[in-house]
């Protein structure tokens, strides 16, 4: 099934697919979307602190350490509630306390790690599948629709086309996300000066590794959809639905409240990486290894299903 796999061809196809994605405009849109959405999310968490400091230190007067600490703690408490909610705990507006393990997890993210960076990184985690979908839906579908792949088939095997484009798209998405994370880390380090550089950089590197692991199953799923459809629009809508599958089910299961008959819907989210991806930021290394293994399992499964269809379809 995988005969004809050639590393040189994979690299060549991956590189030219990235070049073409910028020249066709899709790559430009992906970069802009990644940066605008990512920086806006970072701004949503960091701006309250900056505005608070600006007001306290109005007219050039330096705020007292007590004033500054009090204001920073207020914002960090807000970010902590948001983080707990993102991980499946109680809403920030609820009086109920979240389960103990979740509180411990949140403490790890907020106290043992740079709290503001954790907030930004987890918030980014929620939009990554959608950003990946915009960058990945057209891996093969456009060329299938225009019959463009026929010109490549005499020169290389289908397996190189499929996996070369998958690798190219993954590298492209990760480069955009890496630049974004570097900007956020440097911004927090240079501007807010609240954390040591070592803490910020190590947490940023961890986040990049987590993003790289979580990008694989999503982009593999989008490769499958892209290779299966003969219309770019249909592939785009399907990929977008795939990206929104996890968040929608999570929200649905929450708003179903105590209706036990509907609670099983929440478990359906584990059919996609959405249900496990947050565990890549867990304090227990066993949970991180479990989440990584599951992400790799999903990647393998989606790639297998996708290539099985692509290998036999009419191009």
């Amino acid at each position: 099934m995988m005969s004809g796999l050639n590393l040189k061809h994979l690299i060549l196809i991956g590189t030219s697919s990235n070049r073409n994605s910028i020249r066709s405009g899709a790559g430009i849109v992906v970069i802009l979307l990644t940066f605008f959405v990512g920086l806006m999310m970072a701004g949503a968490i960091l701006t309250p602190i900056e505005m608070g400091k600006a007001v306290i230190g109005n007219g050039g007067a330096k705020p007292s350490p007590e004033e500054e600490e009090k204001m920073v703690n207020t914002v960090v408490d807000g970010v902590r509630s948001l983080v707990i909610w993102l991980m499946g705990g109680e809403s920030p507006f609820s009086d109920k306390k979240s389960p103990e393990p979740l509180e411990k997890w949140a403490d790890y993210l907020m106290k043992d790690r740079p709290a503001l960076l954790s907030g930004v990184l987890l918030l980014l985690f929620t939009v990554l599948p959608t950003i990946f979908a915009v960058g990945s839906f057209n891996q093969t579908t456009g060329d299938i629709a225009t019959r463009g792949l026929r010109y490549l088939l005499p020169r290389t095997e289908r397996v190189n086309l499929y996996f070369g484009r998958f690798l190219g798209t993954t590298v492209y998405s990760l480069i955009s996300i890496s630049i974004l994370v570097v900007i956020v880390v440097f911004y927090i380090g240079l501007k807010l000066k609240m954390y040591a550089w070592g803490e910020l950089i190590s947490w940023g590197v961890w986040a990049l590794a987590a993003y790289a692991i979580v990008s694989l199953p999503y982009i593999a799923f989008y490769s499958w959809m892209s290779g299966m459809m003969s219309s770019s629009f249909a592939a785009f809508i399907t990929c977008l639905l795939g990206a929104l599958y996890g968040p929608t089910l999570s929200l649905f299961s929450r708003f179903s409240g105590n209706l036990e008959m509907l609670q099983f819907v929440g478990y359906l989210k584990y059919l996609s990486p959405w249900g496990i991806q947050a565990y890549l930021f867990h304090h227990d290394i066993k949970m991180v290894i479990m989440a990584t293994s599951l992400c790799l399992f999903y990647t393998g499964m989606f790639l297998f299903l996708g290539y099985r269809r692509f290998a036999t379809r009419d191009l």
Binding site: L32, F36, L39, G43, L46, E50, G57, K191
Partner: peptide, 20 residues
Amino acid sequence: QHNNNLVNMFHVMGLVYPLL
């Protein structure tokens, strides 16, 4: 220079498109 807390992420966002 005046008050570093007045600079925010949205100023950084303004540099993205020109650099791209």
